[in-house]
């Protein structure tokens, strides 16, 4: 069984790495990773320069007491804060496409009869597909981790301690869980939707609902406002009766918020005095981690069920 899952998983990765669509999205993702570090650094240095410039103007005007440097207490890892948004946006689209392509490709190429006329069980098959998707996501995030760790070397003044590198690593780990949920969603709809375009679009709609609508209902913030990490960390939550009620009811399903909260804490944008290492940050926020895991389990089960109902001989993709 393990051998078959392994064979399927490796095959998945091999084919994916030769697909133009995937490579294009990967290239955009990598470019954004590099760019995000650059933007983080450039904003940081500019803000510091603006602060110094402001001080001299205020001194000229005769002031003597000034507020502290706004970036003084911002942790080094905060230069990666845009990565939260890119994983949230492009990462999720990439993940949906990986999951979607994984099964749509098989349906369109007509190889399923060849596979299932061999001693391959349906659970093994879907296990292989999911393992392949995990490999692909791990591959993408490993490169991203390497790019961000390496690019930080070129930023003057940014020395990351071991604990910070560890936290960055955990951030990519949490990203992996978040992206896996969306790949599973893409896979699920590619199994039971007849039309290829619907199979891609429905997960994107669900993603929009989970990423914009749920947070809007639970926080009262406007949808796009939540794309700015600074806003997410510092905006107060709306207090009306409706929002309290919506939070109690919907917060557990808000996958993107679990991801954002964990990431903000790991990158130190949201501060927790009692937690310093990556593991302790995770353990303090374990409820978000557990809810992410639960959604993965639910989607894994849904995929196994969907494939068990899938008819190989009657499938006509449109």
């Amino acid at each position: 069984m393990a051998k078959i899952i392994f064979t399927l998983a490796i095959n998945e990765l091999k084919i994916l790495l030769r697909e133009k669509t995937f490579l294009l999205l990967l290239a955009i993702f990598m470019a954004m990773t590099f760019f995000s570090v650059y933007i983080g650094w450039s904003t940081r240095t500019t803000i510091f320069a603006i602060y110094r410039e402001s001080l001299s103007i205020l001194r000229e005007a005769g002031m003597s007491k000034f507020p502290p440097d706004p970036v003084l207490n911002v942790p080094a890892l905060a230069v990666f804060n845009n990565m939260i948004v890119y994983i949230f946006l492009i990462g999720a689209l990439l993940a949906i496409v990986i999951g979607h392509r994984s099964f749509i490709r098989e349906r369109k190429s007509g190889v399923l009869p060849l596979i299932f006329s061999r001693p391959v069980g349906r659970k093994e098959y879907i296990g292989g597909k999911m393992a392949g998707i995990m490999l692909a996501l791990a591959f993408v995030l490993a490169i991203t981790f390497a790019v961000s760790a390496l690019s930080s070397l070129f930023i003057p003044g940014l020395r990351m301690s071991f604990a910070e590198i560890e936290k960055l690593f955990f951030f990519y780990g949490v990203s992996f869980l978040y992206l896996f949920v969306f790949s599973l969603l893409g896979l699920l709809f590619s199994i039971f939707m007849r039309a290829e375009s619907m199979a891609l679009l429905v997960p994107i709609i669900i993603w929009v609902a989970l990423s914009f609508v749920l947070p809007e209902l639970t926080t009262g913030q406007n949808p796009v406002a939540l794309l700015n990490p600074v806003n997410i960390a510092q905006s107060p939550q709306a207090q009306g009766q409706f929002f309290v009620w919506a939070r109690n009811l919907l917060a557990p399903f808000s996958i993107s918020q679990h991801f954002t909260v964990l990431s903000l804490h790991l990158l130190g944008i949201e501060k927790q005095t009692e937690a310093s290492g990556g593991l302790s940050v995770l353990s303090v926020n374990f409820q978000h981690l557990i809810l992410l895991m639960i959604s993965i389990f639910i989607f894994v089960a849904a995929n196994i069920f969907a494939l068990s109902k899938y008819s190989i001989t009657r499938d006509k993709i449109v």
Binding site: T7, N11, I15, R18, R105, S109, V111, I115
Partner: peptide, 26 residues
């Protein structure tokens, strides 16, 4: 089994396709 209008993974070579299906058959 050879289905009517047999299809393969177009991005893989003939060797890679054969190796994949052979492995699945043990």
């Amino acid at each position: 089994y050879l289905p009517e209008n047999v299809m393969f993974y177009d991005n893989l070579t003939a060797f890679e396709n054969l190796a994949f299906f052979a492995k699945l058959s043990g």
